[in-house]
Each structure stands twice: as C-alpha cells, then as structure tokens.
C-alpha cells in the first residue's frame, strides 16, 4: 500500500468496520508488529488522537494531562483548539463534553508541534454541532501550524466537507483521490457496498473544492 499526502492538507481514511483504518494508524505509529516497512519521504513527528479513551473516574486536570507531554507551551495549544485557558486549565477531564474532550486531545497531540496529526474519529459521544467545531479546529491547525492531518471518519459528509483527499480501504486500497468525487453514487457503492446513499445535506461550513 502506498499513498501520497500533500503537506498541509487533510487526508480522510474511510471504509467499513474492520477495513484496517485504525490498524493503518497503529502501523504508522509503530504500535503493532507488521510486515513490510513504513517509509516517509522525510523524517516526521506524529501526533495522535486515539478513538477510545477512559476518563470518567480519573481526577486529572487538563493542566496535568497536557503537562505530561510538555511543561511550558500548553496554554497556546489550548487556545489553538478554541478552549478558554482560564476556564479549562484546572477543570477535570471527566467533566468535559465529548467535543471538548476531543479538542483537549488535539491540544495534547499538537503540543510538541508534530508534522502529522492522526485523528481517529470516535463513533459516539460527540454531537453533530461539536463535531463540526472539532473538524474546523483541525482545518485551522492545518493552516496555522502547517500540520498535515490524516483523519479516520465514518461520516461521508465530514469527509467531503473537511478533507482534501480520500483513501478508501477495505483490506486494500479501493479508492484514492479527490474527496469531492465521493458525491458519485457509483463510487460510494464501491467503497461501502450496495445500499449506501448520500442524503443531501447543505453544510454551512463546506470547504470549497476546486
């Protein structure tokens, strides 16, 4: 498998459950044993936002959480993901909403200025409005810090509105190209199987595709 991502763009990774999306991330991070090699064009630093996390019972504050990785720069990162520093720094992680938690995780991921951010979308716990905020945050980071974003998503609207290119997986690469082309029903069926339809949905923050 080989694919290209232009620096400072967003690549969406889509595919049915069990297609190997999260496994691809784990391989890129070197977390699982794998055959073959991962080759980058140049050395890269990777930030990671996992799909699953557990905070309900843990009395850890956002300050302590971010300080684990970086002792100095975390205030700017909180601002960069749109969270008010004074309001959030000493809050416990367990009281955050799903969307706030994701933005804290993004702040964590960018605190040591990665070149690439891997973002594994959670399947639940984030309402639609907060999701848009999270993806807008990702797009703004891409511009502001020149971070290249790889995001796993199950939502075809998210993919079309917030990513530049799409990699569709189902054990192997099924499609790799411009995200705008996912509006083609034939292509959509090839990726997700028959029965997939794209409901029409006007998005207020749609990303303009050339």
């Amino acid at each position: 498998m080989s694919f290209r991502v232009k620096p400072r763009t967003t690549l969406a990774i889509v595919g049915p459950n069990g297609a190997g999306k999260t496994t691809l991330f784990r391989v890129l991070l070197g977390l699982v044993p794998h055959t073959g090699t991962v080759e980058w064009r140049r050395p890269v630093k990777i930030g990671y936002v996992p799909q699953q996390f557990y905070v309900t019972d843990v009395p850890i504050t956002i300050r302590e959480f971010l300080a684990f990785k970086c002792k100095t720069d975390y205030q700017e990162c909180l601002r960069a993901v749109g969270l008010e520093v004074h309001e959030f720094l000493d809050k416990r992680l367990s009281v955050l909403s799903g969307g706030e938690m994701q933005r804290v995780l993004i702040a964590w991921a960018i605190v040591d200025r990665p070149d690439i951010l891997l973002f594994d979308e959670p399947t639940s716990s984030v309402d639609i409005g907060s999701q848009d905020l999270v993806y807008e945050t990702l797009n703004s980071l891409e511009r502001r810090y020149g971070i290249t974003v790889l995001l796993i998503s199950h939502d075809i609207h998210t993919v079309m509105h917030y990513s530049d290119s799409t990699l569709a997986l189902n054990r192997s690469v099924i499609y790799f190209g411009n995200s705008a082309e996912l509006s083609d029903p034939v292509l959509l069926q090839r990726i997700f199987g028959s029965g997939s339809v794209l409901a029409s949905h006007e998005h207020p923050n749609a990303r303009a595709h050339p």
């Binding site: 991070l29 990777i46 990671y48 996992p50 843990v58 850890i60 684990f68």
Partner: peptide, 17 residues
C-alpha cells in the same frame, strides 16, 4: 504515577508517547 494514569486513559496514547 502519571505514566500509569496515562496508560489508564488510553494505552495507545501512552505508547505513542
């Protein structure tokens, strides 16, 4: 202490750091 807590929050997050 903090390493144990981090791996509790997410083992993958901990391992990736």
């Amino acid at each position: 202490y903090h390493r144990v807590v981090l791996s509790l929050i997410s083992e993958e997050l901990a391992r990736s750091t």
